[in-house]
C-alpha cells in the first residue's frame, strides 16, 4: 500500500481543520445576513418607538422592546445579588467539599433544565402559588432563576482567579475576612462577574419559553405601568407574528428579529469588550 507523503497529509489535515472552522462561521453569517437583508428595511425610528397597530400588522414594536428591557432588568436585579452572594460564599468561605460538590451539581442541573420547564415552574410558583399573576415580576423571577447558574459559575471563576496573595496581603495588614473580600478580592473579580452577568442578560433577553406562561402578553399596545402588569416581549412577539397572526408583512417579522438579534449580539460584544479591556490591564 502506498502511503501519502507527510507533506501532503499535512496539507489535507490542514484543509479539513480549516473547513470545519469555516463551517462554524457559516450559519452565523447566514442568519445575520438573511435577517439584515430582509429586516433592515423595516427598522426605522417609528418602528422602534411606536405602538403596534392593526393587530400588529402595522406600527412599531415599542412595548415589546420596553417589556424585554424590564424583564431583563428585573432578572438581573434578582439573580445578580443572589448569585454573587452564593459565589462569594462558595469561593471564599465554604471549606466543606461536600456542600461544594452538591452545589456544583445543583448548578449544572439548573443550567441543564429546559427553558420551557422553567416557564412551567414559574407559572406554578410565581404566577400561581405567590399570586403574582402573569406579570413582569413573575417573568423576571423566572428568567432570573434561569440565568442564576451562569452568574454563579462566572462569578465563582472570577473570584477564584484572584490570586491568593491578594487575600494574604490584606489579612496580613490586619483586615478582616469581609474587608479582604470587599477591598482586595471583589474589585479585581468585578470584570469577570460583569462579563458573566451580561452573557446571562443576553440569554435572558432572547428566551421565549420562560416568559410564555409567566408574563408575555399576546397584544398589549401600551407600556407596562407596574411590575404587576403583563408585558409584551420581543421573543414572544416574534413568535406571535410568525405563527399566530395571518398576513403580517415579512418585513415586520424580520425587523423584529433584527432588533432582538441586535440586542443580544450587542450584549455579547459588550461582554467581550469588557473582558478584553480588563485583560489588557491585568498584571498578576
Amino acid at each position: 500500500m502506498r502511503t501519502l507523503s507527510p507533506r501532503l497529509t499535512q496539507r489535507i489535515a490542514f484543509s479539513i481543520l480549516f473547513a470545519a472552522t469555516l463551517f462554524v462561521i457559516l450559519p452565523v453569517a447566514f442568519i445575520i445576513g438573511v435577517i439584515l437583508k430582509n429586516g433592515l428595511g423595516a427598522v426605522n425610528w417609528e418602528f422602534l418607538t411606536a405602538m403596534p397597530r392593526a393587530s400588529m400588522r402595522e406600527g412599531g414594536i415599542l412595548p415589546a422592546i420596553v417589556g424585554t428591557f424590564c424583564l431583563v432588568a428585573g432578572a438581573v436585579l434578582f439573580a445578580l445579588p443572589l448569585g454573587l452572594c452564593a459565589a462569594i460564599y462558595l469561593s471564599e468561605y465554604s471549606k466543606d467539599s461536600r456542600l461544594n460538590r452538591a452545589v456544583r451539581l445543583a448548578i449544572v442541573n439548573l443550567a441543564g433544565v429546559p427553558s420551557v420547564v422553567f416557564g412551567l415552574f414559574g407559572l406554578a410558583l410565581f404566577v400561581g402559588f405567590f399570586r403574582f399573576g402573569a406579570s413582569i415580576l413573575a417573568g423576571s423571577l423566572t428568567l432570573g432563576l434561569m440565568i442564576l447558574p451562569v452568574i454563579i459559575t462566572s462569578s465563582r471563576e472570577a473570584l477564584d482567579a484572584v490570586p491568593g496573595s491578594f487575600r494574604e496581603v490584606s489579612l496580613s495588614l490586619g483586615a478582616t475576612k469581609l474587608q479582604t473580600i470587599k477591598y482586595a478580592v471583589l474589585p479585581h473579580a468585578l470584570p469577570g462577574i460583569l462579563t458573566g452577568t451580561i452573557l446571562g442578560v443576553g440569554r435572558a433577553a432572547g428566551e421565549t419559553a420562560p416568559i410564555l406562561f409567566t408574563v408575555a402578553a399576546f397584544y398589549l399596545p401600551r407600556l407596562p405601568r407596574s411590575i404587576f402588569d403583563q408585558a409584551m416581549a420581543l421573543p414572544y412577539h416574534l413568535y406571535v407574528l410568525s405563527t399566530q397572526v395571518p398576513n403580517v408583512a415579512p418585513k415586520i417579522r424580520y425587523g423584529t428579529a433584527l432588533v432582538l438579534l441586535a440586542i443580544v449580539l450587542l450584549m455579547n460584544f459588550l461582554a467581550i469588550a469588557i473582558r478584553s479591556h480588563f485583560r489588557a490591564k491585568k498584571k498578576w
Partner: peptide, 9 residues
C-alpha cells in the same frame, strides 16, 4: 512577602 505583591491599583 517573597514575591513583591502590590495590588494592581
Amino acid at each position: 512577602f517573597q514575591r513583591p505583591n502590590p495590588f494592581p491599583i
